Amino acid sequence: MEFFSGSFQTLENSLKYASAKNRTLSNNIANVDTPGYKAKDVKFKNYLSAELESSVNAVKTHPKHLPFNQSVSQPIHTVSRDNTTYNHNGNNVDIDKEMAELAKNQINYQALVDRINGKFSSLKTVIGGGN
């Protein structure tokens, strides 16, 4: 039996993504003055694809159809933003953009933590019989 229709797994994956994004943004900010450093981003597409594929209940009706039940466990991928340069030293970290993204990501992370705490609280209430 799966508690909360798989929402714990979705929240866990979302927290992993937010943590990876936070590490990447922090690394970009730490290297704002490093000559030649290229800012990095975390790919969201992998997480979206994995989440969509895990939540779709599809039936293979033809032998040439692709299977839907394959486990999509893709690692976190970071990509460099190599196509821009903002500083004379080859660095492309825009500190204002990175700080804004970091603040947005921290708000998102806290919302996810609050949501998972709510799920655990609901579970605790059910186990305790409403007390």
Rank of each mutant, 00 (worst) to 15 (best):
L123K: 03
Y86I: 01
F120H: 02
S55P: 06
M1R: 11
L52F: 13
Q9A: 14
A58N: 09
F44P: 01
G129R: 09
N57M: 11
L66F: 11
V113K: 11
N83K: 13
V93K: 06
Y17Q: 06
L11K: 12
G128Q: 07
P67D: 06
D94I: 06
L66Q: 11
G118M: 04
F4S: 15
S55Y: 00
N108K: 10
E53S: 12
N105G: 01
Q70C: 07
D114T: 06
G90F: 04
I127D: 13
Q9T: 14
E2Q: 15
I116R: 10
E98L: 01
G90R: 03
N28Y: 03
T85M: 07
E101D: 02
N87G: 05
A20L: 05
T84G: 04
Q9F: 14
V72A: 10
R81W: 07
A111V: 03
Q9N: 14
V32H: 06
V93N: 00
F8G: 07
E2C: 14
G6K: 13
S71H: 13
K60C: 00
A20D: 05
S14C: 12
S7A: 15
S71E: 15
N22P: 14
V126H: 01
S71L: 13
T10S: 14
A18H: 02
A39F: 11
Y47G: 08
S49M: 08
N131L: 15
I95L: 10
S19W: 02
M99L: 10
S54W: 02
N46W: 09
S73I: 09
Q110A: 08
E2P: 15
S71Y: 14
S80L: 03
S54C: 04
S54G: 01
L102C: 02
I95K: 05
S121H: 12
M1D: 14
K60E: 08
Q106K: 04
E53H: 11
K124G: 00
K97Y: 10
E101S: 01
E2H: 15
S121L: 04
Y37A: 06
N46P: 00
L52V: 09
E12Y: 14
N69P: 09
V126S: 08
Q110K: 04
Y17M: 02
N27R: 02
Y37F: 14
T84H: 08
P67K: 03
K40E: 05
G118H: 07
L66W: 10
S73Y: 09
N87I: 08
K43S: 05
I29Y: 11
N108P: 01
I29F: 12
E51G: 05
N31P: 10
I107Y: 09
A111T: 07
S14M: 12
K38D: 05
G36H: 06
G130S: 11
N105V: 05
Y37T: 01
V79W: 09
A103K: 03
K21W: 04
N22Q: 15
T10F: 12
P35C: 03
S121N: 13
M99W: 05
P75E: 00
N91Y: 08
F8D: 03
V59C: 02
K104S: 12
N83S: 12
A30L: 08
E12L: 14
Y37G: 02
S19V: 06
K124L: 11
V59Q: 12
N13W: 08
